[in-house]
Amino acid sequence: MTFSLVARCAETGQFGVAISSSSPAVAARCAYARAGVGAVASQNVTDPRLGPRALDLMADGAGADAAIQALQQSADHMAYRQVLAVDGQGGTAIHSGPNSLGIWTQAQGRDVAAGGNLLANDAVPQAIVDGFEAAPGALGDRLIAAMRAGLAAGGEAGPVHSAGMLIVDRESWPYAELRCDWIDDGCPIEAIARAWEVYQPQAADYVTRALDPSAAPSYGVPGDE
Rank of each mutant, 00 (worst) to 15 (best):
W104S: 01
Q108E: 12
Q72M: 14
L151H: 15
S20Q: 06
E190S: 04
V37K: 02
R209M: 10
W104P: 04
L151E: 14
R53M: 11
Q202R: 15
A193C: 07
G16E: 03
D60A: 14
E11C: 13
Y175N: 05
A41L: 07
S218W: 09
D56S: 10
G51A: 14
P159C: 14
D60E: 14
D185N: 11
D212H: 12
R34N: 13
T46L: 09
D65A: 13
W182G: 06
Q200I: 10
C30V: 04
G36H: 04
I128E: 03
P52C: 03
F15M: 06
R8P: 02
A79Y: 14
I103T: 00
C30L: 15
F132T: 09
Q89D: 15
A138E: 11
Y219N: 12
S22M: 11
S4L: 09
L139E: 01
N99P: 13
Y219E: 11
T2I: 06
G97T: 03
A41W: 02
A31C: 13
G88W: 01
P136I: 05
M58A: 10
L101G: 13
Q108S: 15
S21R: 01
D47H: 08
A134I: 11
D224R: 01
A146E: 08
W104Q: 01
A134D: 12
H95E: 00
I144Y: 09
V160A: 12
L151V: 15
N99Y: 13
A113Q: 10
D224M: 03
F132W: 01
C9R: 04
A113D: 05
A85C: 03
V86I: 13
V112R: 05
A18Q: 01
A114Y: 01
E225C: 15
D60P: 12
D141Q: 07
T12K: 00
Q43I: 06
D181T: 12
Y199F: 15
P24K: 07
G51P: 13
E197L: 15
L151R: 14
G137I: 07
A35M: 11
Q69H: 15
V83Q: 08
Q106Y: 04
G164R: 07
L118M: 12
S42P: 06
G164F: 05
V40Q: 01
V6L: 00
V129E: 01
D87T: 00
R142C: 00
G90P: 00
R81V: 00
V221Q: 11
Y175L: 08
D47S: 06
A145L: 03
T92C: 08
D141V: 14
A35I: 00
L50Q: 07
N117G: 03
V26K: 02
E177F: 12
A70K: 15
Q126C: 09
P222K: 10
I144F: 02
P136F: 04
V129N: 04
A203D: 10
A145D: 06
V160K: 06
A157C: 10
N99K: 15
A146T: 03
A191N: 12
D212N: 13
E133W: 11
G150E: 01
G150H: 05
A25M: 08
S214A: 15
R29K: 15
A146K: 02
A70P: 12
L143V: 09
V17H: 06
V17D: 08
A59I: 13
I192W: 01
S4D: 10
